[in-house]
């Protein structure tokens, strides 16, 4: 089997990488002989993502989302004042908020909380921009919260309309909203299948808004507690919010 060098392997995988002759400081320059196992592993890179990897990615998102909520709870206990939070939170909690997996220059900003209390409805405005465009408003780095206005009982359903506003000068791709499992501080779960979004697909023009309705069904056997999960959108990777439900 013909050996390949690290940089050659890298060039195949990452077209932006430097050619082998231009690398610097690479002291272990001897060729690595690829075993059959290595070849199989490399072949996985070119293939579409396997089921086990997709599962793992989903689990990681859920666990990190759970970490955001837990961190916020701890943060709330440790720091009471907004000033202290401004000083430290970005550093302390950045690990939970950022995802550099896809470098997408989108930021999302919760600009208004116009909750309507009546027939279990609350309304949120989520504003975002498309990559490469500018907005005059400074981004707020908190992940927005979508909190149900009233506690829910097991076996009941409720709907929450929220507004998405595209403040950029470019139209979005068609995207869908989805949510991870909701997890309580006791580790109990409301499966993701109990949270649905309407309409199924959304596309928002520049400066336009769209209304999305979040419908939550609380299974009959759900223990009481505060449940949280991460709402995200396909094709708008950093459009995300924390959905919070209190079950009594």
């Amino acid at each position: 089997m013909k050996g390949e060098h690290y940089m050659q392997e890298k060039s195949k995988i990452n077209p932006k990488s430097e050619p082998a002759g231009e690398k610097k400081g690479n002291t272990a320059a001897s060729a690595i002989e690829l075993t059959s196992v290595a070849q199989e592993v490399f072949s996985q890179i070119a293939k579409s993502t396997s089921r086990v990897v997709q599962q793992a990615a989903s689990i990681l998102e859920e666990e990190v989302a759970a970490g955001i909520v837990a961190a916020k709870e701890v943060e709330g206990k440790l720091f009471d004042t907004r000033d202290i939070r401004k000083e430290n939170k970005e550093v302390l909690f950045s690990r939970f908020r950022k995802d550099a997996h896809e470098v997408v220059d989108i930021f999302m900003d919760l600009v208004g909380v116009a909750a309507k209390y009546g027939i279990n409805l609350t309304q949120r405005m989520i504003t975002f921009t498309v990559p490469g465009t500018k907005t005059e408003e400074a981004p707020v780095s908190d992940v927005p919260k979508l909190e149900m206005p009233e506690p829910m009982k097991p076996g009941t359903e409720t709907e929450v309309p929220m507004e998405l506003e595209n403040k950029s000068r470019e139209v979005t791709d068609v995207f869908s909203m989805y949510c991870t499992d909701l997890i309580s501080s006791q580790g109990k779960r409301i499966a993701a299948g109990n949270i649905t979004f309407a309409p199924d697909t959304i596309k928002i023009g520049p400066g336009q808004t769209a209304r999305v309705t979040v419908k939550v069904s609380v299974p009959r056997t759900t223990p009481a507690g505060s449940y949280s999960g991460l709402v995200q959108a396909t094709n708008l990777y950093q459009l995300r919010a924390i959905l919070i439900i209190r079950v009594v």
Partner: peptide
Amino acid sequence: CSRNLAGAALKEFFTAYGDLPDTRDKEF
């Protein structure tokens, strides 16, 4: 499964370390 995950890890290597200068430690 192990090899699928290792393949995915190799792919993610470039997200984690791809923008760094090539050094002995990066190769390791």
